[in-house]
């Protein structure tokens, strides 16, 4: 039975300090909530390059290929010559391809965002509304009781306003 320890901070630098110390003490199950993106927190929690970029790349490649293929395939289903142009015209179809590249790039990035971030998550999870206003909150999952004592100590020493044990889905 694991317990969740939640610490609430008023200041960004203390919050970052607590995160760093928890990480160094071997706590890996950390959730950091903040009203603004903190690049320092990303670094501590080990978020490097996001896998979203793979989705974007895949989307643009698929879009480019599909765009051109769609233009060619639809032109071949009905042979309707216009204006002395060939049926498969390269420059206009490249424009279609270009637009589809961007469309699919955007849609796949959106998909990637949802997959990577785990959103939408409309279930109840541990959350402190103030952390979306002006508080920095961290939740650390501890496997054993003594571990959670250690975590509480670290959080308090770092300068937290409040420490509590909370139930729920992290």
């Amino acid at each position: 039975m694991s317990t969740n320890v939640m610490g609430v901070f008023e200041f960004e630098d203390e919050f970052i300090g607590a995160l760093r110390r928890l990480k160094e003490s071997g706590f890996d199950e950390l959730t950091a909530m903040s009203p603004i993106p903190l690049h320092e927190a990303d670094r501590i929690l080990g978020f490097g390059k996001s896998p979203v970029r793979r989705y974007t790349l895949a989307g643009t490649i698929i879009g480019a290929a599909m765009g051109f293929a769609m233009a060619v395939a639809t032109a071949l289903t009905f042979i309707l010559p216009t204006a002395g142009r060939p049926i498969i015209t390269i420059p206009p179809y490249l424009i279609i391809s270009y637009e589809m590249t961007i469309l699919f790039g955007v849609l796949f990035t959106l998909l990637g965002f949802h997959v990577v971030s785990g959103l939408p998550a409309w279930r109840d999870r541990i959350y402190l509304p103030a952390s979306n206003v002006d508080r920095f909150t961290l939740v650390v999952e501890c496997a054993e009781a003594e571990k959670s004592m250690l975590a509480e100590n670290i959080i308090l020493e770092s300068g937290a306003e409040e420490v509590s044990r909370v139930e729920g889905d992290r």
């Binding site: 009905f78 309707l80 010559p81 216009t82 204006a83 002395g84 142009r85």
Partner: peptide
């Protein structure tokens, strides 16, 4: 016209050769 300017314009192939 064999190279009719009007024909390139139509988005729905209403005019063609």
């Amino acid at each position: 016209c064999d190279q009719a300017p009007c024909e390139i314009a139509c988005p729905v192939f209403a005019t063609y050769h």
